[in-house]
């Protein structure tokens, strides 16, 4: 019940944040604006709209996960609301988990709204979305859950600005893992190569969660691939949440 109370409170707080609506407005505008790119790509309207809509869902979801997530715990300490909460008989991990779940709920609703908006728009344009579109949305959400967990971990360790910079770097590197492991030969034996190799094994491979091209082209994605990717995301998310709870356990507030 304690985790649910913190989660619901976090959700309620985030829903009342005006920034959320600004981001949703821009996400909607991007989805509607995707038609413009469709015009310049003759016969590709539907593909372009699906691709851009999914990209917008992912990008704006990440923006919310990073900007809200990295200040989630930090703000509670900074505004001192945490004093009256942690002096209650609750475990600290319950607080961290509650904050995470509240934001995860919010991102779930936002992802659903953006995906539904895009699907309705595609239908109005005469197209249709299939199973792969839904799978793509599901994997985007799994990716957002992972990014949110990283944001919450950093929120209990550092300032929101530094946290956001680190999460964005991980997000970009997570989508470029192929480059990290296949450095040109001239980097052999250098620090750069070993640093990128280490990062390759530490940073989650976020490109696994990207099946936008398949959704846009109406290709089939095996259910087992989606399940394995979800399990991969869940493992990383759980690990990050354990680290967040651990780092927060003995923190002086």
């Amino acid at each position: 019940m304690r985790i649910a109370a913190v989660a619901m409170n976090t959700f309620r707080e985030a829903v009342r944040d005006k920034v959320l609506y600004v981001l949703l407005f821009f996400a909607g505008a991007t989805i509607l604006g995707s038609k413009a790119l469709g015009w310049v790509s003759v016969g590709q309207d539907e593909k372009i709209i699906i691709d851009i809509s999914l990209a917008a869902t992912s990008l704006f979801g990440v923006l919310i996960a990073v900007f809200v997530g990295t200040s989630l715990v930090y703000k509670e300490i900074d505004k001192r609301t945490i004093y009256t909460i942690l002096s209650r008989p609750m475990w600290r991990y319950e607080f961290v988990l509650g904050k995470y779940l509240g934001l995860a709920m919010l991102i779930g609703v936002v992802t659903l709204v953006m995906a539904a908006m895009a699907a309705a728009y595609i239908a109005v344009m005469g197209g249709h979305v299939g199973l792969t579109y839904l799978q793509a949305v599901l994997l985007i959400y799994c990716q957002l859950l992972l990014v949110t967990a990283l944001s919450v971990l950093l929120s209990s360790l550092t300032s929101p600005i530094l946290g956001a910079m680190i999460v964005f770097s991980c997000y970009v590197l997570g989508h470029a893992t192929g480059i990290m492991i296949n450095m040109p030969p001239r980097f052999d034996g250098t620090f750069v190569k070993s640093a990128f190799e280490t990062a390759y094994y530490v940073i989650p491979n976020l490109s696994h969660f990207n099946i936008r091209a398949e959704a846009a082209n109406g290709a089939t994605v095996p259910g087992t691939y989606v399940l394995w990717t979800m399990a991969y995301g869940a493992a990383y998310t759980a690990l990050l949440l354990v680290l967040a709870a651990f780092s927060f356990e003995n923190k002086d507030v």
Partner: peptide
């Protein structure tokens, strides 16, 4: 009771008491 207590600004006293009751089990 901390010095200069801060609470969630968007909650009412009734919601605040309810919230702390929930986290108090």
């Amino acid at each position: 009771l901390p010095e200069n207590p801060y609470f969630y600004e968007y909650l009412t006293p009734r919601e605040t008491i309810n919230f702390y009751g929930q986290i108090g089990g």
